[in-house]
Structures are given as C-alpha cells and as structure tokens.
Nucleic acid binder design. Sequence first.
DNA 1: AACGGAACCTGAAAGC
DNA 2: TGCTTTCAGGTTCCGT
Length: 271
Amino acid sequence: MPELPEVELARRTLARVLERGRITAARSDDRLVSPGAPGSLEPLVGARAVAVERRGKQLRIALAAPSAGGASLLVFAHLGMTGEWHEAKTSAPPLRHEKVRVDVGARSLRYTDPRRLGRFVVAKEDTKAWRALGPDALADGVDAKALHAKLAKRRRTVKEALLDQKILAGIGNILAIEGLWRAKLDPRSRADRLTLADVRALAKGLRDAIAFQLRQLEKATEPKYVNMGGENPFRIYGRAGKPCPRCKHTLAKIVLGGRGTTFCPSCQRRI
DNA sequence: AACGGAACCTGAAAGC
DNA sequence: TGCTTTCAGGTTCCGT
C-alpha cells in the first residue's frame, strides 16, 4: 500500500525477476484484471519484459510477445490500498491473500491484496489513467514554479490538491501530511493562496519526505512495507494527540477530502 | 475544468 | 468475551 516509495520498491522487485527471462506462467484470480475474465494474464506467457517503469503510483510493464510477431504488450498495474509484490520460489505455496502470480523459471512474483482495490490492465497502448498523470514526484523532481502554477488553479485545500495525481504523481495521504508538516504549512490552506515562496518550501518538504521514506524502505532487511509492523517511522502521521516533534504542541486530526489528516495547529502556518 | 461525495473491498483495531 | 463500529497508504464514477 503504496505511495511512491513503496511502488518504486515494487518496481525494482518486478524488474529484478522479470529480467531473468521469459515468463513461464501467469495467472490471476478473479476481478483484479480488467477488461476480461479471470486468467486474462494468460497472454503474458512466453513474453519477455523489455521495460518496467513507474510513474507516480502506476506501474507499466512493456513486454515483447513471441506470438503475434513480437508485438508489444503493456501491462498496467496499480496496487490500490493494500497491494504488495513479493519475490518467491516458483515451488513456494501461495501467500496469504495472493491474487496474482507470474513465474519466470524458478523465480516467482506474487501479488497479494486483501482489499482487492488493485487493478491490472493489459493493453496495446497507454491507458487514459497513465496519460493523465502529472510529473513524477521522484524521477522528475518537484518543480516549485510548475507546482505553484498548478496550485493557483485550485480553490480547495492544498492537502486535497496534492492528492490529485494530475498535479504531482505519486503523492499519497502520508506524503502529503509529512510534506506539509516539513514545510510548516497548514493542510487547510487554500491551494491558490500559496505564494511561490510557500510552494518552494512545500516542494522541499515533499522531496525530503519522499527521500526519507525511500531510505527507510531500502535499509530494511527484507523489503518491508512502511508501517507494517515495527514502530511508526513518520514524523506526525499516525501521531494525533501526541506532541509535535518540532514545537511540542498537541497534534490534531481532521478530515480533508474524506481522508484523515494529522497536523500541528501551532507550527504549521495557515495561509 | 474543478468540486464534493458515494462507491468499490476486506481486515484489523477500537469501542461498548 | 463477543458483537458493532470505525478506520485504513487509492482510484473512479457521477451529478453539479
């Protein structure tokens, strides 16, 4: 469950296994693959991945299919709220909540997703969802001027605007919360009221939050997903009611755009 | 084009 | 203890 850093880790896992060779088996449960019925990942068998890319929270796997004269095939994968990719031996039994598996010889990729909000789309060209994505917050960086121009068109709160993947691809609820706290900006501030200086601080806050989260994941012994077991690594996410790590004021929690939002009413400035 | 809200799903944790 | 409610890292669709 993924925000940009977790999806980037998933991308690396997929790339590591898929570069070993041709796909020897692929199957999917139920409703996750669209359009089509269960088992519609079948066309992947015999294909070889030529690129595993990520944009925001979306993954795109480009495949060269042996049948159809080497025609190219694209698989778009999104992890929803609870999707995870794991590497396993092909001989290993299914994992709990396993919904998709892709085997490459002796190695196997297992996709688990208890809530089933993830999606797979097999297509010949880019999907509308992929094309609509804004710049990737990690690969393209966070450009303050461009971000400022986009936020200037939004009258909702900056927190809600940040969750729109057209503005910046890859920012999720946690990164928005953490980035705003690092930038000392109140999440309720109206997006179009932020000055360029505010947005510069926000851009830095987001960059730092992403880098921090990525490092946390990279240094974990096994590619563990943030927040699953162990202690909360975040500055303020999940810490409502506790003291702000910066000014010690009690952290508050509200709902913005239907999502829980933790912030410090004292040191995050409302614009 | 942008907005606000419901809908899609299940499981873990908190509340009573 | 056991039943009920709430909440969770995301997107999409729909009527304004």
